[in-house]
Write a protein that binds this DNA or RNA. Structure first.
Lengths: 336, 336
DNA sequence: CTGTTAGCGCCTTCAG
DNA sequence: CTGAAGGCGCTAACAG
């Protein structure tokens, strides 16, 4: 930390400038009114000595770090990457830095990781899609200030920034209904994932609202490989009458499309395919992939806005649920 | 940082256990031999009081943070994501955390960002593909301990973990030569990017070694959109006689393939296409994309290994250059 | 083996 | 407007 060998301290600067440490501290922080002459000398000394304050000492005095942590199950997930990027840029504009804590999908480590991260930082962002709700509730109390991302947690004292997956799925179903599809397949995500549960609720609601609609659920996954491996299962659903498929996310959809093409299935001619998340690649697939767009960077920025308020001792601001936006592309077409 | 409201301190624990702070500190750090009875009491007190040490105070005393920073131009680049993931996991296994500093491609901010990050951390990892060499040299001296990633910096006192792009390109060219191609096009990356310069060197070397080989350079970019927009330019090169294309990276190659397909160009029938980096999507494109695989996670782990040694006061260990591995797939085929 | 004593570098009353 | 003094929480000598 700080400099190599013994760093120059505020005392050195004070001596060099012939003033007290207090004065140096004042010009450093622009506090009170300091004699312009002193300001000059101190700044000169700081420059010639190449002094810069010790963050550790500052932290000890102030009780804060200007650092927040983001706890994620997998840094390689495009959704979390986008959120991290947005969060990191927003926080940086307020002089805060973001520390990442990747739990590598080990749900059992998440609590300890979060707590440890919280000890190092002023606040944390929690992405824990698989953690059981009760554990998460306890954890959230313990590590406040905190913002939870991408999963519901009703009536908890914590801001939640999330995506309205229920609504997103329903909108996507409407799109397919509009194209004439009446029998769909939903390729689900990880069984324990909260956002998968939300999507399933969307599926159920859609079925209730549209009695003539049928949606078969096919167990799936969350990665390209999963989608690829699921092609046969999906074809089974098609043989059952499904004319369109909604995948848990774009990666699954892309992997699925790849395999379907190998199997000679025409998309969307034989089968329509839709994904979720609108990853950058979606628009460049062949056929381009219909998806539900999620504002990843914006989510990151909102997370920071909430966290900043909390750090400043402000209230727990309202949660936000972003409504995904349909990006209708070539992979979904009229039934028939 | 630390707890909410006024946190319990080591003094509280000492009082509660009826011992001195020093003893508490000792059991906390497993230092010296402490009377088992005391250990018991202290641990009990720690548990009942829910005490956990202040990292800030520790940092101040030790002069370190157990935190490193990674400075990157763009967190959304798959290469850096992979490295960050590997770095973060490796560092975590030694109790270190990683803080990210995204400079959002603003080259002029990189120095300030790196220096600021260094003040907060015990060491930094520098990814600065566009920074002019002289500036980088000065910076590297200033922020040591540091490891530089993915760009050469001859004779500098810093470990470099990189990719042998020269070799990678040459191996890729050999692959295409083996397929009978004698006239290639290289779609270049960002003009100021160090790794693009390396690739260009590979191109030049290949041309020198193979007098019958011709490689036209087409100005390009680094993203999907860039590749997409470059299709016409690439077709120009093909009309000039090129039968195969090497793209700066996979994203460019994928964007290019998308557009070519729209234009009715058969890959690899009419034109072979190869990328670089072997991103996850490469194997799932249609046709699957021939690429040069780069061990992103492994690079991150090696970066940590070097950094750990430096932090411990060890020597500047040898730099490492990973040789990309050819992943020959469907997008490259025999000429004709 | 344990307690006391100094700081680590900075900020912040409180006098002057 | 400025300087002196104490303390943030912890660890590392140094005595006992």
């Amino acid at each position: 930390m700080g400099e190599r060998s013994r760093a120059t301290t505020i005392a050195d600067v004070a001596a060099h400038a012939g003033v007290s440490q207090a004065s140096v501290s004042r010009v450093l922080n622009g506090k009170q009114t300091v004699d312009p002459a002193i300001v000059q000398r101190v700044q000169a000394s700081i420059a010639t000595l190449g002094y810069s304050p010790s963050v550790a000492a500052r932290s000890l005095v102030h009780g804060r770090n200007d650092t927040i942590a983001m706890v994620v199950p997998d840094l390689e997930n495009p959704l979390f990457q986008g959120i991290l990027k947005g969060l990191s840029l927003a926080a940086a504009s307020d002089g805060y830095r973001v520390l990442v804590a990747d739990t590598a999908e080990r749900v059992d480590d998440e609590e300890a990781t979060a707590i440890e991260a919280r000890h190092r930082c002023d606040a944390i962002v929690l992405c824990a899609p698989r953690m059981p709700e009760q554990r998460l509730r306890r954890l959230v109390e313990q590590v406040a200030p905190v913002v939870v991302v991408n999963r519901p947690l009703p009536d908890a004292d914590v801001p939640i920034i999330g995506v309205d997956y229920v609504r997103g799925i329903r909108d996507l179903v409407e799109h397919l209904l509009g194209l004439g599809h009446r029998h769909l397949a939903y390729v689900s995500g990880p069984a324990t994932s909260a956002s998968n549960a939300e999507r399933l609720r969307g599926v159920e609601e859609a079925e209730q609202v549209h009695p003539d609609l049928r949606i078969d659920v096919v167990p799936g996954g969350s990665r390209l490989e999963d989608g690829y491996a699921l092609a046969e299962a999906v074809l089974g659903a098609r043989d059952d009458g499904a004319t369109a498929v909604i995948a848990f996310n774009d990666l699954v959809a892309l992997g699925l499309m790849t395999r379907l093409r190998q199997l000679g299935v025409d998309v969307p001619g034989d089968l329509s395919i839709a994904g979720f998340d609108d990853v950058p690649m979606a628009g460049f697939a062949t056929p381009s992939l219909t998806s539900m767009s999620v504002p990843r960077g914006e989510i990151g920025a909102q997370v920071w806005a909430r966290l900043r308020t909390l750090i400043a001792g402000g209230p727990i601001e309202h949660s936000v649920l972003y409504r995904p936006r349909l990006e209708a592309r070539e992979s979904t077409g009229p039934v028939g």
